[in-house]
Design a protein around this nucleic acid. Structure first.
Lengths: 108, 108
DNA sequence: TCCTGGTACCTCGTAGTACCGAGTACTGCT
DNA sequence: AGCAGTACTCGGTACTACGAGGTACCAGGA
């Protein structure tokens, strides 16, 4: 697939929120999950900047835990504000995608 | 609706291309059309920057025509490169929206 | 005549986001 | 000891949408 980077702006953060909502997890694993889901070109650096932003905006709760296969992991879980933000994200996504699909259909 | 600006990045240009593909039209009218279609907060300045970019990237053919109700209008029409770019846009949109919808459904 | 409002275009600066590259550090295996 | 895989951080860059302001053309009313 062509370069999606511009189109990902504004949606990638929501995707990360959704992944965290599904289970408490950490940056490296989130990157892998995104790649699995078809966001093949998303790299670690990008995910970490999003995670730091989520933390700064107090949408997640962070827990550091040791790992048996490498350095300690920072596990992320949504808090109430994070769940609200996720709901807002899906509302926006639904709104946008419905408008775009309408435009595609000939938009009358 | 909440602020969509970040989510619009990468998609707005495609929307403008689609509108131009539908009929030869000009900036001011395109802005109105977008507003009608639900992109209520898109302002003229944004559309003009997109149109200048399309022109710079040689995706459109531009024709200036006088108007009876104001200053002359710059009409935009897609050329072959523009139609190709539009097709690429829809392919990317389809790809992205299918991945996101999959993620929303629980993403297995 | 002047002024307002609608039409139509352009430009500059700003903020936000994804990405790249490089660096640090821990573990287990050879 | 060296290496590969895991895991996080940071600084800089490119691109995009937007806000604010400006220019200009036309019609109608005070």
């Amino acid at each position: 697939m062509d370069d999606l980077t511009e189109m990902l702006k504004g949606t990638l953060e929501g995707c990360v929120l959704e992944i965290i909502a599904g289970e408490e997890t950490y940056g490296y694993a989130i990157t892998r999950r995104l790649n699995e889901l078809g966001f093949t070109d998303v790299v670690e650096g990008t995910v970490y900047t999003i995670l730091l932003r989520l933390e700064r905006n107090r949408l997640v709760q962070v827990t550091k835990r040791p790992s048996e296969v490498g350095p300690p992991r920072k596990f992320y879980a949504l808090n109430d504000a994070g769940r609200e933000e996720l709901a807002r994200f899906w509302a926006k996504w639904q709104y946008l995608s419905s408008r775009i699909d309408k435009l595609k259909e000939g938009g009358r």
